[in-house]
């Protein structure tokens, strides 16, 4: 078939030189690559499209288009381009071209754990503010992330800038999840309503994740490190108390609700002992059981915990 118009778009293989594989994301392999035309370093996410008679699936089309629209906010990893190609078997492959960031929050926290140092309080405050700001931006545009975790929060260690990655990919690529590593299936940042089988998510699921990340920045350990859905719930209940209809109306009607051991709530300061009063207050508002009572990202940015933070460059 003769193509209308001039030369075609460069294929991903022609446009980029793969430098190294840097990870296996939930939705495919991730490469550090150089764009040949500009010399710019990018992150290439390679994803198989599960085509049927339709060609590009509508959900992929809609969600990738959202990413293309959200790429102007400084706290969302920028999707610079999308390349469509074919692999050796002739199957369609999509390359998402993202700006490259040197590290992520998971590695950042691990580096402090290894040296035995604590993350400086003002660094925690700055990173948390940027995270709230990025989440507020997404939520303000009706976008949920649904998989916020330190691995998905990319950082530039020189500037301490933080950006949210993998936004919307959960819905763009509904592929069977292979168990590459246990980390891919981590439950640690999952909100209790999700674990209990709620079918209607709200933006509050991301706020819960933000709260878990907040605590982890302070202690360098996961707040709720469950290795099964039941264990995840029990971790949460041990600290926050087993929920009931008084603290969380409707909880007993959720699909996965059972009888659970009855724990009384503990003070958050027992889990995050070095966080100050204002930080503990903000954290407690992020970890409310009832989703509608959880603080919003926008309100979190206004919390007094951030009052003494210099926000001019954030």
């Amino acid at each position: 078939m003769e193509k209308p118009g001039g030369g075609g778009v460069l294929s991903a293989k022609e446009a980029f030189e793969k430098l190294e594989k840097v990870g296996e994301g939930t939705y495919g392999k991730v490469y550090r690559a150089r764009e040949k035309a500009t010399g710019k370093i990018v992150a290439l996410k390679k994803t198989r499209l599960h085509e049927d008679e339709e060609g590009v699936p509508p959900t992929t089309l809609r969600e990738v288009s959202i990413l293309r629209m959200l790429s102007r906010d400084p706290h969302v990893v920028r999707l610079m381009d999308v390349k469509q190609g074919q692999n050796k078997e002739g199957k369609t492959v999509l390359y998402l071209v993202f700006e490259y960031m040197d590290t992520d929050l998971k590695k950042f926290i691990r580096s402090f754990r290894q040296t035995g140092q604590t993350v400086p309080p003002q660094t925690i405050k700055s990173l948390m503010y940027q995270l709230c700001k990025g989440v507020a931006f997404c939520h303000g545009h009706g976008i949920l992330h649904r998989d916020l975790k330190p691995h998905n929060l990319l950082m530039d260690p020189k500037t301490m800038m933080l950006k949210i990655a993998d936004l919307g990919l959960a819905r763009a690529f509904t592929v069977p999840i292979k168990k590459y590593t246990h980390e891919i299936l981590t439950l640690w940042y999952r909100a209790p309503e999700v674990l209990l089988g709620a079918t209607h998510y709200s933006m509050a699921v991301d706020i819960w994740s933000v709260g878990c990340i907040f605590a982890e920045l302070v202690t360098k350990q996961a707040l709720f490190p469950g290795d099964s859905e039941l264990q995840q719930l029990l971790h949460i209940f041990r600290l926050l108390g087993t929920p009931n209809e008084d603290v969380w109306p409707g909880v007993s009607k959720l699909m996965n609700w059972h009888e659970y051991p009855q724990w009384n709530p503990q003070s958050l300061s027992t889990a995050v002992p070095s966080l100050d009063e204002l930080g503990l207050d903000l954290l407690s508002q992020m970890l409310k059981y009832e989703p509608s009572k959880r603080i919003s990202a926008k309100k979190a940015m206004e919390h007094a915990y951030f009052d003494d933070l210099d926000k001019r460059h954030l």
């Binding site: 078939m1 193509k3 209308p4 075609g8 778009v9 085509e51 008679e53 060609g55 590009v56 089309l61 809609r62 990738v64 288009s65 959202i66 293309r68 629209m69 381009d81 999308v82 390349k83 469509q84 369609t92």
Partner: peptide
């Protein structure tokens, strides 16, 4: 053919840089 439409779709998507919203 479906495949022909799909190839044209891919060309259009590339030209529009997947900004379909």
């Amino acid at each position: 053919e479906t495949q022909t439409i799909q190839r044209m779709e891919a060309l259009i998507l590339g030209a529009l840089q997947w900004r379909m919203r």
